[in-house]
Design a protein around this nucleic acid. Structure first.
Length: 663
RNA sequence: GCUCCCGUAGCUCAGUUGGAUAGAGCGACAGCCUCCUAAGCUGUAGGUCGCAGGUUCGAAUCCUGCCGGGAGCGCCA
């Protein structure tokens, strides 16, 4: 498996060093396009020919080099044969019985890491219901967390709560000045509060548009929100916490949870910025402008943190410089974010207080920050922050501010491994014109022509997360009812729920991060083709086979009783090759997981899993296990089914997708 | 104006980091349920990989320029 690949690479490097005196630091390994070309291909001869020509000027034939290297590779454990093909590929054929037996070994979880990675995701403004774009963020983040943890990385999941920003302020303005409601009256609002705020938020935006003077209420509200115990702050706190609870409910439906919820209000009240300000000033990262257009502001130079002198100055008016403190002395969002990130990495020197916020049935506990040191903060709790690095799942439109934060960290905390601190940027979810029509949204004339329409919380334009999940569950339930009318209602609902989650999470993961998802109801609500339910169905079919086998009294899991010779025969020839390609694909899960994690790209895992399910369905139609007369062959077919079923289940689990018993 | 992302089949997207004959799904058309669940399978049609150069044994992938779409570059968050 992986060890064979590593072994191969090492051998090739050693041989090339010995024969040609060239030390390669990287050997490309690929999967040949056709099984006839073997299981692992090394195009190393081409690279070597190039390097030899460069160093000696002598032209070498790649094919000849490949033959030389291949002959020196000799016998290797787990490899049955090595060929040289085409213009100079070294093709490696694996020992099939050995590989299959290795796949049956139990999965050993890796040693957990000492260091902790802080993963921030979701971070939805707590002023309205979550929409499909927020789900993309949360599902991406949650899946990355699962991948990293599976590889042994210790992870802390943070969901940042911006409860003092413009968005919350706008909803407060809506309640206070548009609806003229008191806190008491707000508390008496029944029904889905986040939906209520969704509509109100859109109305406030309209109200501002109608009369820009109304923006004065926003400015005033923003100031009052920051004052501890001010009535406006209390109202904002009530609203944002009630909406936050809805968000956590929504995310819980998809199996997404958090360790800690840092609140912006607590960053203010704990005076994080004051400390960060001192650190930045001391490091000389920010300077006070006494002239120019940024006069009176504290700014970070564009080249801060670079060791080189900034001699190549600058007739271009410091256009790259970033303001952190306004001329009125207040800090902006990026400044607060720098303070927050210094805290994440344990570099701020002060901490929040914490209290329990939500407990889950499996005893998982989510904590929230608080400013006051009360009784609750003395409860034993995990240590938050002090990460060795951070991963921020944040939309790609925030690339610039994220770069600034990273730059500031690099400048003031040189001991931080800044390479591991990454902004996991992803593109947004836009709406297809058809989806807009189905939502009953009036489009502006210039929008009608577009291929896609951006969602806008301000305009109340978007697909609400809960409504979409409801729709998916409803659709799945109808399907389950017609297929399994004999099942009890709760059982049917449980299946429908798993299918809905599978459909939604897979839908959001199958696109690569850099691709804009053009949301369409037909695509998102589909259970056919490249979808989560397709994969779940493949597993359900495998389970069904197991049930039938058990009922017929046919033993499972005794491949060990079949000799290597017999297995070699069974795995050769046309149908043997066919079975082998499925086994080999199933074995590549771990490699795919590693790759998806290295690239921070869950889509790689999603695509792989679908491909494996597809190949299994093919197998399912080609081979009828229950009717297989040859016992050894039947045992092999059963084993293949078991291996594939296990890998598919593991892969789905990493994507946060469960599997029903039947569907 | 500058920076970043995207452009591949009618539509939505992959493409193993430069490799062998460019792949899926949806949609269309034609088939497959006495047979482990048809949420499945088989077949057909569908491509100048935006355009033009360059780099080399080899380019959808890398470099340059252009065209088209999106985002960012605020004393907003």
């Amino acid at each position: 498996m992986r060890s064979i690949e590593t072994e191969l690479k090492a051998r090739v490097i050693a041989i090339i060093d010995e024969l040609y005196g060239i030390r390669l630091d990287h050997v490309t390994v690929e999967i040949p396009p056709r099984p006839a070309f073997g299981d692992i291909a090394l195009p190393i001869a081409f690279e070597l020919a190039k390097q030899l020509k460069q160093s000696t000027g002598e032209k070498q034939v790649p094919r000849r080099l490949a033959e030389t290297i291949a002959s020196r590779l000799g016998q290797l454990e787990g490899i049955s044969r090595i060929d040289v093909a085409g213009p100079g590929y070294i093709n490696v054929f694996l020992d099939r019985p050995r590989y299959l037996r290795a796949l049956l070994e139990p999965v050993v979880p890796p040693q957990p890491s000492q260091d902790k990675l802080i993963v921030e995701h979701t971070s939805v403004n707590p002023n309205k219901a979550a929409h499909i774009g927020h789900l993309r963020n949360a599902v991406l983040g949650d899946t990355l967390v699962r991948l990293l943890r599976a590889l042994g990385q210790k992870v802390e999941v943070q969901n940042y709560i911006d409860n003092t920003g413009v968005q919350v302020a706008d909803v407060v303005v809506g309640f206070k000045y548009l609806e003229k409601k008191s806190l008491d009256e707000i508390q008496r609002i029944t029904g889905k509060f986040d939906d209520y705020c969704w509509d109100l938020y859109a109305r406030v935006t309209e109200w501002y548009d109608q009369n820009p003077d109304n923006l004065a209420y926003r400015r005033q509200t923003l100031q009052e929100i920051e004052i501890e115990d001010h009535p406006t702050a209390r109202m904002a706190d009530y609203i944002s916490m009630r909406v936050l609870n809805h968000h956590l409910d929504t995310m819980d439906r998809l199996g997404i949870r958090y360790d800690v919820l840092p609140r912006e209000s607590d960053i203010l009240h704990c005076r994080f910025w004051d400390r960060a300000f001192e650190i930045l000033k001391q490091a000389g990262v920010i300077v006070y402008e006494t002239k120019g257009r940024n006069k009176g502001c504290w700014v970070m130079r564009a080249n801060a943190g670079d060791r080189q002198t900034s001699s190549t100055s600058s007739e271009d008016e410091y256009s790259e410089d970033k303001i952190l403190v306004r001329s009125d002395g207040t800090v902006n969002y990026t400044g607060k974010d720098i303070a927050y990130h210094l805290w994440k990495l344990g570099k701020l020197g002060i901490d929040f207080n914490y209290k329990p916020f939500r407990s889950y049935p499996d005893r998982h506990q989510t904590w929230i920050t608080t400013a006051e040191a009360s009784e609750a903060t003395r409860i034993t709790r995990p240590i938050f922050g002090f990460g060795s690095a951070y991963l921020n799942v944040i939309g790609s439109e925030q690339t610039y501010p994220q770069k600034v934060v990273k730059q500031a960290i690099a400048a003031v905390a040189p001991d931080v491994n800044i390479e591991r601190c990454v902004h996991v940027a992803y593109e947004k979810v836009a709406l297809s014109p058809r989806a807009c029509m189905e939502l009953g949204i009036e489009l502006k004339p210039e929008e009608r022509e577009r291929q896609q329409i951006s969602m806008s919380g301000r305009r109340g334009l978007g697909v609400k997360a809960d409504e979409l999940i409801d729709k998916l569950e409803q659709r799945a339930l109808e399907e389950v009812r017609s297929r399994h009318p004999d099942l009890q209602e709760p059982a049917q609902r449980e299946i429908a729920h798993l299918i809905a989650v599978g459909a939604l999470r897979y839908f959001l993961l199958k696109y690569t991060r850099t691709s804009v998802i053009t949301f369409d109801f037909d695509d998102a609500l589909s259970f056919d083709g490249e979808t989560g339910p397709y994969i779940q169905y493949a597993i359900v079919r495998a389970q069904s086979i197991f049930r039938k086998l058990d009922a017929s009294g046919i033993r499972r899991g005794h491949l060990a009783e079949i000799s290597d010779d017999r297995l070699t025969t069974l795995l050769s020839g046309e149908s043997g090759d066919d079975l082998w390609s499925l086994i080999y694909l199933a074995g590549r899960l771990d490699d795919t997981v590693r790759q998806a994690s290295e690239n921070l790209e869950p889509a790689l895992l999603a695509k792989y899993t679908f491909q494996l399910a597809q190949r299994f369905n093919l197998f399912y139609h080609h081979y009828h296990i229950l009717r297989e007369p040859d016992e050894a062959r039947r045992t092999l077919l059963i084993t293949v089914t078991e291996v594939v079923e296990r890998q598919l289940r593991r892969a789905l689990d990493l994507m946060g997708i469960g599997v029903p018993e039947k569907m």
